[in-house]
Every structure is written in structure tokens, then in C-alpha cells.
């Protein structure tokens, strides 16, 4: 048996999304960020009804339409064509952000550039002087949604840790992240710091710790 290629170590993006979906309870109202988080919608376990909100004004977002059936006036927050499920509703932006800022959405799943040991999130700007700053709804989501899940590769393409002691990029919110799903592990942000709750198959705690910029602890089975 040959060792798996390094790039394929741990969970794939699809498996990460599947793992997030497994933690979403029946009846939850959920907002998915753009990118990897969008994959989560495909993996809702059978028998659970989960309602996806997209902040541009749709509760009850369904999958992408068949080719040729796209409607430019039925899109998601990533400006991609979507469908509306039976029982969906449309609304204007103030109502949409009443759902988000008023604490009516149960879970949001977001991407990250960095997450700190205290749950600070940086996911909107590199802070570089020539970058065009663009924030969208990220700051509203982390401030208002009941639980904030992050789904991200454990390290950057160049191998820098994304889970760090202190974020160096501009923050999206302070102490807002509840749980991080990476290709290597599932990590809860607790008052005692980040705790590894689950390791991807074949991944050791030491392997995860070496690729993390802050001290982790391992959940002890009680």
C-alpha cells in the first residue's frame, strides 16, 4: 500500500462539506458563504429538512438549475443562478438582514483566511494597500448568526497556518467563530482555547499541531 499523496492528505473538500452538513440539525435555517461553504447544501443527510437563506433575498434556496434554465433574477449571494424550493420566500435587503442581524439564522458557514485562538475571524481583506476592499455581508453574519462555522483548508497553499494565535489580516469580527472544519480536523473554539474534537482518518494530533500557529488541545473522552 502506497502512502497517500501529500495534497490528498486528510478530508477532501467534499468530505469536509459532508462533515459540516452532518452537524446541521433538522429544521435549521442556514446561510452558506461563497466558495467551499456552498458545497454543504449537497450533503444534507436524508430525513432532515434544512432551509438555506441567501442574503440577497431568498429563504428556501434550492440547487443550481438545469443548463438553459438559469434566471438572471434568481441568484445567490455569489451571483450564481439558483432555484427556489417549494415553500420559498423572497424579501428585500432590510428584511434579509433582520434575519441575519436579529439572530434568526441558526448557523452560517464561512470561508476563512485566518481564525485566531480566541475565535477572531479574518476573511474579507488582505489589507494590502492596492487591494479593493469589499466586505459584503460577512461582518453582519458573524455579528448576528447564532453559530458561526468556518470551513477551510488547514493551511494556505504556501503552507502557512490559518489557525493562529492572533490574526494578522483585518478582522471580520472578534471572538465570533464556534467551530472550524479543515481538511485535517474539526476544532472547537472554547474559552480554554482551540480543542481538536475529531481528526481526519489517518491524521495524528501532532501532524495537526505542526500545521497550526497556536496551541491546540485534544478532546478527552469523558
Amino acid at each position: 500500500m502506497s502512502a497517500p499523496a501529500k495534497a490528498n492528505y486528510g478530508w477532501t473538500r467534499e468530505q469536509m462539506a459532508q462533515r459540516v452538513a452532518a452537524d446541521i440539525q433538522d429544521g435549521a435555517y442556514v446561510n452558506l458563504g461563497i466558495g467551499i461553504p456552498e458545497l454543504v447544501a449537497q450533503y444534507v443527510p436524508a430525513g432532515r429538512e434544512v432551509i438555506f437563506q441567501t442574503e440577497n433575498g431568498l429563504l428556501g434556496m434550492g440547487p443550481a438549475p438545469m443548463a438553459g434554465k438559469e434566471d438572471p433574477e434568481l441568484i445567490n449571494a455569489g451571483k450564481k443562478a439558483v432555484t427556489a424550493i417549494a415553500g420559498a420566500s423572497y424579501f428585500h435587503h432590510a428584511d434579509s438582514f433582520v434575519m441575519i442581524r436579529g439572530g434568526h439564522i441558526d448557523i452560517c458557514v464561512l470561508g476563512a483566511m485566518q481564525v485566531s485562538a480566541k475565535g477572531d475571524l479574518a476573511n474579507w481583506s488582505t489589507g494590502e494597500p492596492d487591494a479593493i476592499p469589499a466586505v459584503g455581508g460577512a461582518m453582519d453574519l458573524v455579528a448576528g448568526v447564532k453559530k458561526v462555522f468556518v470551513i477551510t483548508e488547514h493551511a494556505t497553499k504556501s503552507g502557512e497556518p490559518k489557525i493562529v494565535e492572533q490574526c494578522t489580516y483585518p478582522l471580520t469580527g472578534k471572538a465570533v467563530v464556534d467551530r472550524v472544519y479543515t481538511n485535517l480536523a474539526i476544532i472547537d473554539i472554547t474559552p480554554e482555547g482551540p480543542v481538536v474534537m475529531e481528526l481526519a482518518p489517518g491524521v495524528t494530533f501532532d501532524h495537526v499541531q505542526k500545521r497550526t500557529g497556536t496551541n491546540l488541545s485534544l478532546r478527552t473522552n469523558s
Binding site: H93, A94, S96, R101, D120, V135, G136, M139, A143, G173
Partner: peptide
């Protein structure tokens, strides 16, 4: 640059005759 929900609420408030309001969005950020 304005967070999207703050932008929506600023417009809603303007239309409702509300000159200002408080929100948790963007606290602790630039």
C-alpha cells in the same frame, strides 16, 4: 465601504426618519 446589512439598515432608517442607530456589525474591525 459599508457592511451589506448596515448599508440596508442605513437606507431603511433613512426612509423611516431615523437619523442614526446602533449595531453590533463591524465592532472590533477597521
Amino acid at each position: 465601504l459599508v457592511p451589506q446589512g448596515t448599508l440596508a439598515e442605513r437606507i431603511r432608517a433613512g426612509g423611516a426618519g431615523i437619523p442614526a442607530f446602533y449595531t453590533a456589525t463591524s465592532v472590533g474591525t477597521v
